[in-house]
Design a protein around this nucleic acid. Structure first.
Lengths: 247, 247
DNA sequence: GAATCCGCGATTGTATACAAAAAGTAGAAC
DNA sequence: GTTCTACTTTTTGTATACAATCGCGGATTC
């Protein structure tokens, strides 16, 4: 037994970083998700395993796994008749976006609540990180030529910091599963985003201040408000473009 | 085109209700989940696809799908080394239970908030349904010989009504994915539950009253409190039994 | 005696073949 | 022209074979 522990201790840490090929499942998941998010697979489009497999030049097996997961995450919807299921890209609607943003707002709000309860030092550290991101966002807000993807990444990062700093593993996982879905709506909205970015930056400031003050209620509320306002900004754009799942 | 629509309208509705065999995937998912929930697969146990497949007398394929899903739902945890993943039954800890109950409390709280905003008639209808369930629970609370499963089902039903009455599809799906996980802890706790059932019944009453009054804040809070108290009751039991993932 | 390397068994990931079921289609009956 | 029905096609679900990878244990070397 002592030998065993010693051996385990001696285990070689040189993990095979050598080969960075990703598993087919991962490519399938990643690429499919990208196709959906970027709208190359339009909402409502039927998804056929064999087609995707051909397109990605892999077998149906990993495609199937990826679709299973995407289904659970809400990117694809299943219309099933007793045994077999037909999959389609989940539609984007104003109602769905409202619910989605509403839920995320509350989940992240919970994380914010925890965050505001940390000790002062930790809060200051987080606030600092948030401030850096938000300053960059603020800077980009002035520039109308900014790449929307860059803005999305920054905003994503902002909220990621918010959650990962204090949330437990379950809350983190939940957030990780739900948050990326906003990207679909974000893309829809990309053109109009730069104009309204200032509002979001202001809301972020309010969040940061609440954290610095260590005020759980205010932090939770500020985060919720940020998402709710986001939903409204988004709603206006969807409205103006006509709601059909076209694009 | 008119012919086409007509033909669709004429489609035979006689759906094959004949054959109720479920898909292998469903049996795999159901049985595996049951094994885990009932502790026949103890927390920390490694899960090997081939073993499960043999045990259930089906091929690895549906087992694999089921494991994928159980993994995403948090029943099994994956420890992966670059490419291959090793699966194990997720451990049960006091910390995890606290986070789980905390999250559910808030998610259901959201549903309760929506519920309390319905019109009076709808609220009354829901309150009535809740009252029926809670009365039955109250009745069972007096009887020390009650089957714990019966109590679990009733409580599950109570919370189900709470959510399905007003929540949108996403919130519903989220709840459906998370809520069943409490069953693992509930089983752990089953012996001690009957003693403390009275408390839960009282909390339920408070929830029902808030709904009848149409008070969103109170409803949300009451639901949160119900879950938080549940977590505490559970925590005491786990504590007293020693926390190791034994059973 | 301890650390390192190598090879084998165990286990996961992928591809393919096959079975089953549903949707579409054409044709017959009225 | 419509409706029911039998057939064909498409697509999903399952089984199995194969490849890649991991972990463990023994052999080797100093």
């Amino acid at each position: 037994m002592s030998a065993k522990t010693k051996r385990r201790k001696a285990r070689k840490p040189a993990r095979a970083l050598a080969d960075h090929r990703e598993r087919s499942f991962d490519t399938a998941y990643r690429k499919l998700r990208e196709l959906i998010v970027h709208g190359r697979l339009a909402p409502g489009t039927r998804v056929v395993e064999a087609d995707i497999a051909r397109r990605l030049e892999i077998s149906r097996t990993p495609v199937r796994s990826a679709l299973h997961r995407l289904q659970q995450e809400g990117y694809v919807a299943a219309y099933r008749s007793s045994r077999q299921a037909r999959l389609a890209v989940a539609p984007l609607t104003k109602e769905d976006s409202r619910e989605l943003y509403w839920i995320i707002g509350h989940i992240e709000g919970l994380a914010g609540r925890l965050l505001a309860q940390l000790n002062e030092e930790a809060r200051a550290r987080v606030a600092e990180r948030l401030l850096v991101i938000n300053t960059e966002l603020s800077r980009l807000a002035g520039n109308p030529q900014t790449n929307p993807s860059r803005i999305f990444d920054l905003d994503m990062g902002f909220h990621q910091v918010l959650v990962e700093s204090a949330a437990g593993p379950r809350l983190l996982a939940l957030h990780a599963a739900i948050k990326p879905q906003t990207e679909r709506y974000w893309r829809l909205y990309a053109s109009a985003i730069v104009d309204q970015l200032g509002e979001s930056v202001a809301e972020h400031k309010s969040i940061i201040q609440s954290i610095e003050r260590g005020d759980p209620d205010a932090t939770e509320h500020a985060i919720q408000r940020n998402w709710q306002c986001g939903a409204e900004r988004l709603g206006r754009v969807i409205e103006s473009r006509g709601e059909r799942g076209s694009w």
